[in-house]
Design a protein around this nucleic acid. Structure first.
Lengths: 229, 229
DNA sequence: CGCCTCGACAGAGCAATGCTCTCGTCGGTT
DNA sequence: AACCGACGAGAGCATTGCTCTGTCGAGGCG
């Protein structure tokens, strides 16, 4: 949420304060009513200010949404990273399980925020540059687990590996010599969020009885595909 | 789209006609502008009628959306079923590949409709009963492939199988004696739409270079997990 | 210490939305 | 032929995002 690092003047300080205050109120509205119902006027009302005053802090509703999106990505990333960090480094499968379970928990506790991130994009909203870095955190986390396995020798590169993954992305995460597994990582990543989305949006209603157990199975299926011991 | 089977009177016929006409215009708006931008008034304008007149045919915007959703589910289901039907019955993996590829193609050609089905639910919109049957068609299709394999002996039931899937759903699709595989089917189903959604919503931007090949890999991973020969 | 500029805010206003209500009108039925 | 009900139009209400104009107060400069 911090917009600028050092609020020098008192003016700037109170401005930063109000900015976060607006974002906080907006976040609660988002959490209770969903993204599409997020009304700038309602936020202003709750803050006791005129709707036009909010525009001094956020040039448009989309900008407000952007900061909420970035915050949500960060919260989700934090949750997953914290859970994953608590597991022994050489327990690759355990790290994946922990990260995935934390992501699911976060999604279940923040359904509307999750939908904002991984559901249909908001109409007329084009994700700006600032969102792409936080968006990759969970993917990076999974990638890191696999990269660790390769580095320690617990995993050996898989054969094949056509040009499905961007070489640039491959190099960034140190998986240049195992592109096949990189593709599997992306598959696991998307499958993970597909499973969470299905549960969240009710597509498994009357089909899955124990969602937690089913999700664990999904994660283990991906762990098997990745060859995690 | 057909609302009632036999329009007896001329009145009923012209009514049915106008009803589908409204839905058709709404569908084009949905296809071009997305679900949230679908405006009842804009549809009425394009049809040259007062906005209030539309309410004689659809009691609310949500009802219009519901018929669009049902139609979209049916179109997606049709596409997948047609593609799958063209493959030799004993080629289980080929059938899965065909169905999945068709689903992806349909999603890429109808992104907004796809988002309406598998993206975040529209705010304040509660999916009525009528949507759940068409929604399950693609899942049923995948299930049918596995069930065929079990019936022909190409597949043998997997061990284990905790109570993760609803017994009722298990019985409905004839997978009572292979609950483990049923859970894998649901996993494949959700993973499939997770992958499509990732591609569609740009989460794999700068990561995946060849989406078609990557998607084939995802499908084959699930086919492997399901044990398809 | 006084002035003055600039940021902050409020309110009115515009175009648009979903939905309701009322009021004519025309078609099909008894 | 009379009538009843479906149909369509128009006005209206509450709401939204966003802009514009005017006013006030606090901070900086002379």
């Amino acid at each position: 949420m911090r917009r600028v690092s050092a609020p020098r003047t008192a003016r700037a300080r109170v401005r930063a304060q109000l900015t976060t205050e607006i974002a906080d109120v907006a976040r609660t509205h988002l959490a209770t009513d969903g993204a599409a119902a997020l009304s700038l006027r309602a936020v202003a009302r709750e803050l006791g200010m005129a709707s036009s005053a909010v525009y001094r802090y956020f040039p448009s509703r989309d900008d407000l949404l952007t900061t909420l999106i970035v915050d949500a990505y960060d919260a989700l990333g934090d949750a997953a990273e914290r859970a994953e960090a608590a597991v022994a480094r050489d327990d690759l499968r355990g790290r994946l399980r922990a990260a995935c379970a934390a992501a699911r928990d976060w999604a279940l506790t923040h359904p509307h925020e999750y939908s904002l991130l991984y559901g249909s994009p908001v109409p007329g909203y084009a994700a700006p540059e600032t969102t792409i870095a936080p968006a990759g955190r969970v993917g990076l986390l999974v990638t890191g687990i696999v990269a660790d396995g390769l580095a320690s020798g617990a995993l050996t590169p898989l054969p094949g590996g056509a040009d499905v993954i961007e070489p640039r992305a491959l190099a960034d995460v140190g998986l240049t010599d195992d592109p096949t597994r990189a593709a599997l990582v992306v598959a696991a990543w998307s499958g993970l969020f597909g499973a969470i989305g299905f549960e969240l949006h009710g597509h498994t209603h009357n089909v899955v009885s124990d969602h937690a157990a089913w999700f664990r199975g999904v994660v283990d299926t991906h762990a098997d595909a990745l060859g995690l011991p």
